[in-house]
Design a protein around this nucleic acid. Structure first.
Lengths: 163, 163
DNA sequence: CCAAATGGCATGAATATCCATTGTATCCCG
DNA sequence: CGGGATACAATGGATATTCATGCCATTTGG
């Protein structure tokens, strides 16, 4: 059980007033190699103030992971509740959005709020999934090691922004 | 689970103004024997002021290791955070670049900065991966034994450079 | 009928692809 | 054993494509 193509790399793109943003081409190419879809599922990240994003192929894998975890925990007192919550988290709390011919998505208002996305979106490959951050929050996040933050610093600098 | 073909040997190639550099043919042949890809993933080396480089086959191996480790630790209090950090380190902090028909890659600006690569690139086979150094930094690195540095000295001399 | 959302097009910059030249190691035949 | 010929590798430069993004047109829903 493993996905063949992995998301990697980073990019910083502009979010316009309508919440539209280009998904970097190198991430789209992974989606299109994994399947023939042109959609992205967005979710609040479990651990960070950011969005987690993935394609339909990963959604199936995610489901399998939840099932497996449940089997492992079976018998634990709160396993059933945990299982329900994970499923809701994975499916109710997500939104699927298509990207257009030029590779742009509209971040739905709820997700924009949950991920605290403003006018810049930092895309980070994370293997099976990728993440979308407000670069400001990424730099402020204590759980992110400092040398990782260099990615954001570099991408901002590249655009002539410093923050 | 081990890769059959290993990177070995050394070479010193020129980096042009656009950041283009030829990947030595003997390294490319290993990549192409491991899989059918023609891309290289670049990362900052964990211990040295240099770049670590590998092919998609090795990236998949790395991904599998991270997943297995997580499944083993699942339930531990900080397993989830550890997992997230490992994934970001392995995938967000790296960049995948294709090489063209003549075997050249463009070192992305961020990697060029992280690896402190100037106008010469020293390629060193390291088994499962290979490294790309600024030869000047290689010679200056205290953790590298002197007889290893003879490789760089020889390659420089070969080009009529001394440093 | 208006406001907002969506899809399509234009542009400038960044990127990739192609072609040409040079150098070097190898091979073959004299 | 020597010398030329040949193939491959590395590199420089020019051209062609692609990407991100602003702008405008069309649609949709209230």
């Amino acid at each position: 059980m493993a996905l063949e193509h992995l998301f990697q790399g980073s990019a910083l793109n502009a979010v316009d007033a309508k919440g539209r943003v280009s998904v970097p081409a190198f991430l789209r190419s992974v989606i299109e190699r994994r399947g023939d879809a042109r959609t992205i599922t967005l979710a609040k990240h479990e651990a960070f103030p950011a969005l987690s994003a993935y394609d339909p192929a990963y959604a199936a894998l995610k489901h399998a992971k939840i099932e497996r975890l449940f089997e492992k925990q079976e018998g634990d007192s709160d396993a059933a509740l945990d299982y329900q919550q994970r499923n809701l988290m994975a499916f109710a709390a997500t939104e699927e959005v298509p990207y257009d011919t030029s590779g742009r998505i509209v971040i739905p208002p709820m997700m924009r709020r949950k991920g605290e996305i403003a006018d810049l979106a930092l895309f980070l490959g994370a293997g099976e999934t990728f993440q979308i951050w407000n670069p400001k929050l990424f730099l402020a996040e204590p759980k992110i090691p400092d040398d990782m933050k260099d990615i954001a610093r570099f991408r901002l600098e590249e655009r002539g922004l410093k923050l």
